[in-house]
Simulated assay, not measured.
Amino acid sequence: MERAVDIVGKLKGGEIKPAELVEECLEKIERLNPKINAFVTLNEKAIEEAKKADVSTPLAGLPIAIKDNVETRGDKDDVLLKVLRKLRSRRGCCAC
Protein backbone atom coordinates (compact mmCIF):
# COMPACT_ATOMS: atom_id res chain seq x y z
CA MET A 1 0.00 0.00 0.00
CA GLU A 2 1.39 3.35 -1.02
CA ARG A 3 1.50 6.37 1.26
CA ALA A 4 -0.75 9.31 0.38
CA VAL A 5 2.29 11.59 0.01
CA ASP A 6 3.75 9.23 -2.62
CA ILE A 7 0.47 9.06 -4.54
CA VAL A 8 0.19 12.87 -4.52
CA GLY A 9 3.74 13.04 -5.88
CA LYS A 10 2.76 10.75 -8.75
CA LEU A 11 -0.33 12.85 -9.46
CA LYS A 12 1.66 16.08 -9.51
CA GLY A 13 4.42 14.46 -11.57
CA GLY A 14 1.95 13.22 -14.17
CA GLU A 15 2.77 9.55 -13.57
CA ILE A 16 -0.91 8.87 -12.95
CA LYS A 17 -4.07 10.85 -13.62
CA PRO A 18 -6.70 11.41 -10.93
CA ALA A 19 -9.38 9.55 -12.92
CA GLU A 20 -7.09 6.51 -13.30
CA LEU A 21 -6.44 6.52 -9.57
CA VAL A 22 -10.17 6.70 -8.80
CA GLU A 23 -10.85 3.85 -11.23
CA GLU A 24 -8.22 1.73 -9.45
CA CYS A 25 -9.79 2.51 -6.08
CA LEU A 26 -13.29 1.70 -7.31
CA GLU A 27 -12.07 -1.61 -8.74
CA LYS A 28 -10.49 -2.49 -5.39
CA ILE A 29 -13.66 -1.52 -3.54
CA GLU A 30 -15.75 -3.66 -5.90
CA ARG A 31 -13.42 -6.62 -5.34
CA LEU A 32 -13.05 -6.34 -1.55
CA ASN A 33 -16.23 -4.71 -0.28
CA PRO A 34 -18.39 -7.86 -0.44
CA LYS A 35 -16.03 -9.38 2.15
CA ILE A 36 -15.39 -6.37 4.39
CA ASN A 37 -18.53 -4.24 3.88
CA ALA A 38 -16.63 -0.99 4.43
CA PHE A 39 -18.48 1.14 1.86
CA VAL A 40 -22.23 1.77 1.89
CA THR A 41 -22.39 4.69 -0.53
CA LEU A 42 -20.02 5.66 -3.32
CA ASN A 43 -19.88 8.95 -5.19
CA GLU A 44 -21.42 8.11 -8.56
CA LYS A 45 -19.63 11.11 -10.08
CA ALA A 46 -16.18 10.28 -8.69
CA ILE A 47 -14.51 9.58 -12.04
CA GLU A 48 -16.13 12.60 -13.66
CA GLU A 49 -15.02 14.84 -10.79
CA ALA A 50 -11.51 13.36 -10.85
CA LYS A 51 -11.16 14.31 -14.51
CA LYS A 52 -11.68 17.95 -13.47
CA ALA A 53 -9.20 17.84 -10.56
CA ASP A 54 -6.50 20.51 -10.53
CA VAL A 55 -3.48 18.52 -9.35
CA SER A 56 -1.49 21.69 -8.68
CA THR A 57 -3.39 22.14 -5.40
CA PRO A 58 -2.53 20.14 -2.25
CA LEU A 59 -4.12 16.68 -2.14
CA ALA A 60 -6.19 17.32 -5.29
CA GLY A 61 -7.04 14.11 -7.09
CA LEU A 62 -6.38 11.96 -4.02
CA PRO A 63 -9.42 9.72 -3.34
CA ILE A 64 -10.69 9.75 0.24
CA ALA A 65 -13.27 7.83 2.26
CA ILE A 66 -15.56 9.65 4.68
CA LYS A 67 -17.32 7.93 7.57
CA ASP A 68 -21.07 8.28 7.10
CA ASN A 69 -21.53 10.11 10.38
CA VAL A 70 -20.32 13.24 8.57
CA GLU A 71 -23.01 14.93 6.50
CA THR A 72 -22.16 15.27 2.83
CA ARG A 73 -24.58 17.26 0.71
CA GLY A 74 -26.63 15.03 -1.60
CA ASP A 75 -25.31 11.74 -0.24
CA LYS A 76 -26.92 9.21 2.05
CA ASP A 77 -25.80 9.68 5.64
CA ASP A 78 -27.57 6.87 7.46
CA VAL A 79 -25.02 6.31 10.25
CA LEU A 80 -26.18 2.69 9.91
CA LEU A 81 -29.66 3.59 11.19
CA LYS A 82 -32.38 1.92 9.12
CA VAL A 83 -34.75 4.84 9.67
CA LEU A 84 -32.29 7.17 7.88
CA ARG A 85 -31.37 4.87 4.95
CA LYS A 86 -33.40 6.67 2.29
CA LEU A 87 -32.68 10.24 3.36
CA ARG A 88 -30.20 12.43 1.57
CA SER A 89 -28.46 15.25 3.35
CA ARG A 90 -29.26 18.81 2.35
CA ARG A 91 -26.34 20.15 4.37
CA GLY A 92 -22.65 19.76 3.84
CA CYS A 93 -20.15 18.94 6.52
CA CYS A 94 -18.55 21.70 8.58
CA ALA A 95 -18.51 24.96 6.64
CA CYS A 96 -19.35 23.38 3.27
Rank of each mutant, 00 (worst) to 15 (best):
E2I: 08
A4H: 11
A4N: 08
A4Q: 09
A4P: 07
D6M: 07
D6V: 04
D6P: 00
I7F: 06
I7P: 01
V8Q: 03
G9F: 02
K10I: 02
K10Q: 11
K10R: 15
L11I: 03
L11W: 00
L11D: 00
K12M: 05
G13D: 07
G13R: 02
G13I: 00
K17T: 09
K17V: 02
P18F: 06
A19P: 01
A19K: 00
E20M: 04
E20P: 00
L21R: 00
V22H: 03
E23C: 02
E23K: 02
I29P: 03
L32Q: 10
P34M: 04
K35F: 12
K35L: 10
I36P: 11
I36S: 04
I36R: 08
N37W: 09
F39W: 14
F39D: 10
F39V: 15
V40S: 11
V40G: 08
L42D: 11
N43W: 06
N43I: 03
E44Y: 05
K45D: 15
K45H: 15
K45Q: 15
I47R: 01
E49R: 02
A50G: 04
K52V: 10
K52M: 14
A53L: 05
D54P: 12
V55K: 00
T57Y: 12
T57I: 05
T57R: 15
P58R: 09
P58D: 08
L59I: 07
L59N: 11
A60R: 05
G61F: 02
L62H: 02
L62T: 00
L62A: 01
I64G: 06
I64W: 15
A65K: 12
I66Q: 14
I66W: 15
K67V: 07
N69H: 10
V70G: 05
E71G: 08
E71C: 06
T72V: 12
L80A: 06
K82V: 13
L84V: 06
L84I: 05
K86T: 11
L87I: 14
S89T: 05
S89V: 02
S89Q: 06
R90C: 09
G92D: 08
C93P: 15
